[in-house]
Each structure stands twice: as structure tokens, then as C-alpha cells.
């Protein structure tokens, strides 16, 4: 009983907040029938298009029919749109058009699996986003941070986009990569339950809950992110002439 109480979401958030046996993510692993999504970046700004490729996890693991729902937000966590896909295949792809994101430049999307049958598990969709620059080959990267959750039979709600743990203590994340390209960008998302003051190299930003940001890496070979988030891991866009390389930091 006490063990179970220690694993409830509210207590987990407190444990993370005060860094007492932190779990880093605000996830109650005893829950059932939950679909968790990483926070995936989309961008359709100058010369970019974004494609999402995902596995139908309920069909693959449980051999049950299901749909997926994808929810699009702008960089300020304003809801833009949603799509429902009746997925009969094991894997599917979806190209994010300017129309679906209402001509906004960039933001975040989340994918949830939906089914009326029970699965007694927690699914995490951490699939693959491809970014094409100037109509060239899509450069793919997998998701890297569980960010939002929904019961597989529930309707859309704007809640529960806060699965990354936050602490009262300072946390540092340094990308283990040397930056020496002509142009490099780092996209970050605040998927913690609270607003964050963040120092990215020399740039101070204030990022509200659910908001995302693109930082330009200039004249620095390191990328150091100071905040109160446990693992504020960026997606990196690295350019050399017209060639693009995207990866998670």
C-alpha cells in the first residue's frame, strides 16, 4: 500500500521536485491502458517539411484494431489541429503540411494510440520524425523524451503534457558533441509541469510549460543547457551548405 502510494503521480512529482529518489519522468508505471507520446518537433518554416513515421503499437503488440490521434500545437502550446488515422498497417507515415499547422512555422506534436479494448499496459510512442530541407532527403531522428499521456479510450484534453520531471535544484545537460558546422540549431521543449528559466550557453530564455524554442548555436563548440529540468535534451539541426543532419543531443 505504502509502496503504491509512493508511486502515484502526485508523489512522483514531489519526489522529482525535491530530488528525493527522483524518477526523472512524472510517470506512474502502475497505471494501465495509457498511451504516452514523446514531444515531437515539427517545422514547416523556410524550406522545411516534416514527415512522421510511426508503428501502430496496439496492432503490433496486442494484435488489436486501433486508431492513432495526432495533436498539433504551435511553439507556444496553442492547440492548432488534430488528425485521426485509422491504421490498418504495422507502420504508417504522415506528412505535416502548412495547412494542418495553420501556416505557423514550428511547434510540437504528440501521438496517442486509441482503442476501446483494454491492453493493461503503458505504451510509449517514440517513433521517427524526418526533416527535409530544400526538398532533399528526409533526415530522421527518433523521439527522446516522454512528454504527454492519455488513456487509450479517452477524448482529447489539454492536460497531461508535463511528463518531464522538474526540481527545485539546478540541473545541467551538456550535449556530448562538438559543434563546428557553419550553422547549427537546437530545438528544446519544456514538457515539465512548470514554467522554466533556461540558460542555453549565453542565452537566457523563459519557456512556459509546453512551449518550444529554437536556439542558434554561435561561436561555441559546446552546447550547455542549465535549467531545473532533469533531462532537457535538444534535437539538433546541423547544416553544411545544402546538406542537413538532424539528431537528438
Amino acid at each position: 500500500m505504502i509502496k503504491k502510494l509512493f508511486k502515484t503521480e502526485k508523489i512522483i512529482k514531489l519526489r522529482n521536485f525535491f530530488s528525493i529518489s527522483p524518477t526523472f519522468f512524472n510517470i506512474n508505471y502502475l497505471e494501465k491502458n495509457i498511451s504516452i507520446s514523446d514531444g515531437f518537433f515539427w517545422r514547416v518554416d523556410d524550406n522545411f517539411s516534416t514527415k512522421f513515421k510511426f508503428t501502430n503499437l496496439i496492432k503490433f503488440y496486442f494484435n488489436k484494431e486501433s486508431n492513432v490521434e495526432i495533436f498539433f500545437f504551435d511553439n507556444n502550446h496553442n492547440y492548432l489541429n488534430q488528425i485521426a488515422l485509422n491504421t490498418k498497417n504495422y507502420s504508417e507515415e504522415y506528412i505535416i503540411t502548412k495547412k494542418i499547422v495553420k501556416n505557423i512555422n514550428f511547434g510540437v506534436f504528440y501521438i496517442f494510440h486509441r482503442s476501446n479494448t483494454k491492453i493493461d499496459s503503458i505504451l510509449r510512442n517514440s517513433c521517427y520524425v524526418g526533416y527535409s530541407y530544400k526538398n532533399s532527403l528526409y533526415s530522421y531522428v527518433h523521439g527522446n523524451t516522454p512528454s504527454a499521456k492519455k488513456n487509450i479510450s479517452d477524448n482529447f484534453s489539454k492536460l497531461n503534457y508535463d511528463l518531464l520531471g522538474s526540481s527545485i535544484f539546478k540541473k545541467k545537460y551538456v550535449v556530448q558533441k562538438k559543434f563546428n558546422s557553419n550553422k547549427t540549431e537546437a530545438m528544446i521543449l519544456n514538457s515539465t509541469p512548470i514554467d522554466q528559466r533556461i540558460l542555453i550557453n549565453d542565452e537566457k530564455i523563459f519557456l512556459k510549460k509546453g512551449h518550444s524554442y529554437i536556439h542558434q548555436i554561435k561561436d561555441k563548440e559546446l552546447l550547455e543547457i542549465n535549467s531545473k529540468c532533469y533531462l532537457l535534451r535538444p534535437i539538433i539541426f546541423e547544416y553544411e551548405k545544402d546538406f542537413l543532419n538532424v539528431y537528438h543531443g
Binding site: K32, S121, I122, R124, S136, S139, V141, H142, L244
Partner: peptide, 26 residues
């Protein structure tokens, strides 16, 4: 590889898509 552009990425092991203890059995 297409028109000299390259994309490289690894997939996740299948147990990482299930966060509950039934992952290895599934």
C-alpha cells in the same frame, strides 16, 4: 542515400515501447 544526401538513425529495441513490466513477455 539519395542525391548524395544521407540519413542515418537507429531503431529502438521493441521492449522500450512498453513501459510496464509485461514488456519482455510481450
Amino acid at each position: 542515400v539519395d542525391n548524395d544526401h544521407i540519413s542515418m538513425e537507429h531503431t529502438h529495441p521493441p521492449h522500450q515501447y512498453i513501459l510496464t513490466k509485461d514488456n519482455f513477455d510481450l
